[in-house]
Write a protein that binds this DNA or RNA. Sequence first.
DNA 1: AAAAAGATTTGGAACGTACCAATTGGACGC
DNA 2: GCGTCCAATTGGTACGTTCCAAATCTTTTT
Lengths: 353, 353
Amino acid sequence: MNNETRREMEVREGRATIVDVARRAGVSKSTVSLVLGGSSLVAETTRERVSDAMNELGYIYHRGAATLRGAKSGVIGMVINDLSNPFYVELAIGIEQACQGGAYIPFLANTAESAIRQQQVIRSMREHGAAGLVLAPAMGTSASELKPLLAGLPVVQVMRRLPGLRASFVAPENKEGARRATAHLIAVGHSRVAFVGGVSSMLVREERLAGYRLALDEAGISLDPSLVIETTTNYSGGGTAVPQLLNLPEPATAALCFNDVVAIGLTRALMEAGVSVGVDFDVIGFDDIEEARHTRPALSSVAVNPRDLGSRAAQLLMRHLASGDFEPQAVLCPTALALRKSCRAAGPYERDN
Amino acid sequence: MNNETRREMEVREGRATIVDVARRAGVSKSTVSLVLGGSSLVAETTRERVSDAMNELGYIYHRGAATLRGAKSGVIGMVINDLSNPFYVELAIGIEQACQGGAYIPFLANTAESAIRQQQVIRSMREHGAAGLVLAPAMGTSASELKPLLAGLPVVQVMRRLPGLRASFVAPENKEGARRATAHLIAVGHSRVAFVGGVSSMLVREERLAGYRLALDEAGISLDPSLVIETTTNYSGGGTAVPQLLNLPEPATAALCFNDVVAIGLTRALMEAGVSVGVDFDVIGFDDIEEARHTRPALSSVAVNPRDLGSRAAQLLMRHLASGDFEPQAVLCPTALALRKSCRAAGPYERDN
DNA sequence: AAAAAGATTTGGAACGTACCAATTGGACGC
DNA sequence: GCGTCCAATTGGTACGTTCCAAATCTTTTT
């Protein structure tokens, strides 16, 4: 009796439960559970009565309790290394879009290139029962530190691959894209093509650099190490490369950059040094971020289509989840060379001398 | 007996529980729970033994089970209307940074300006036991549709305020910022200042427009409705305004734009029409996004500092959570006028005529 | 009209954790 | 040697859900 009244009061306090709904609808909690699960067993009239009760009480499903019983959470985690980079924002949006139709809701967490934060965030997602992860690893992450955290969880890596981590991987065809861009610069007449940006510990850079090397090789040009310049991967990084490129005995006349941000920084610094980009000096970036279209001169770039990348990663993850088969797969996305004003489209390059 | 062996096997299968850890460490589950909670009651040697057992088993805390017992989830949800807008990305980063030190981990969800998705996402965050929400409402959201979903949950609205929703609110001083920018344009000699961008249903636009009106008023200039132009809030929106501004009997000579994206679109279209921005025509944007510094001519803007905004919102939410006092508060963040090349800094404006 | 079959509904036992009350094992004072 | 006190540890219960086996109600068949 006492218990009854206490119960009755509690309906107002805290979160309404399945039992509260059941009492209100005059059915058992099991029936309410069936309604929640969309079971076909329950009669139409009952279903309505239960739904009404839910609305009246402002019932909110307690997923924690459900996962306890083994139910899947319906959440996939996006762990992204750098949201201040528009490229990764696009990638995240691609993931989201791919989840739209499906049964999953994506939650996003930014690691800001911090390995520690990445650990926290992954742990937190697991604790909350995320069904799977799309992971764009933070810089300097090692597979060994993540392995215990990720054990048993389906994971798709994007952009960066952690050597030693058995997990699927989605990335652009970095090497082929860089090869093609470099080949283009050579085709329009350049023989002094630089590669600017990034540091050698970055795997992605190695891939792009390999494409650059391959193109030189194919053209019979031998690699000049002084044309390969390491920089930070931000606007100012591109700027720092300018004196190094121009003060060479044989100055560079074109550059393929590690990414667009570096390329834009480089372009800006060249223009300020009085070198007209697209006329005196050709620049091609990598990633084709939104901004590439809007800088002057508009930046040519190897288009990576981050949305596509994200979307494929999400689809791959959902396939893993649906099939229960977590056998790692690799997906390489084709790139496209977007030619704009920052480099000539065709025809020979003529240096005034 | 049978039960025992089944148990023993299960240690390998599925997720290790607090009980598995306890057995391994040779203590009771209660002790493990105390270790998890960082209690000072447990002896140092025991704590170590338990920690070791956790690592060996790859134990992962099951937050769902804990929230069931009333524990707080430690998650705050960021529900953001448009992540493809760099402004809101910055805002999200500000929220994250404010959470760094605190006990909360922020999860981000993008609604892409869809009210339906917003509902889904908020529901999902509640289901997962989010302790509170920072909400940048999607366009066209009404308080009534969100009220039942948000009942009892501490919420801080950012940027947009939903009339009728009793919840805290953090926003820039839109009116004062717009007043000051307009006053500046008038002070350098303009009398035909336009206001470009947005549509009248947007509350934020109304605030900024009010500041524009106030400045005109203070300068004794009467408002010319043909100088107030509604557009979509993207790059092309700014472009569409150009003919309307220049084909007036008395053309506009300056414009305050609803936001930077519109301002950049406007600038670009003006330059293409042969009007030199910063010389023949002054433009000021709003929000001061990263890109404003990088367009040519660099865009003057009312700096809103989205990080600060996000950070204040998160701090306010955490204060609500810590105190248990959800009484709504309003926080207005000061703006700053960032003057760059797209408008003159001082001195009279002289129209060649 | 009883039995069989089908359609709905239901009680109860988990799931992994936190917390309360209770227990244990010393160390200490007498 | 006994009680007292303190520090450290422990069972047991409850949280909101799912799912199974069983119960109830309806209809159909004999």
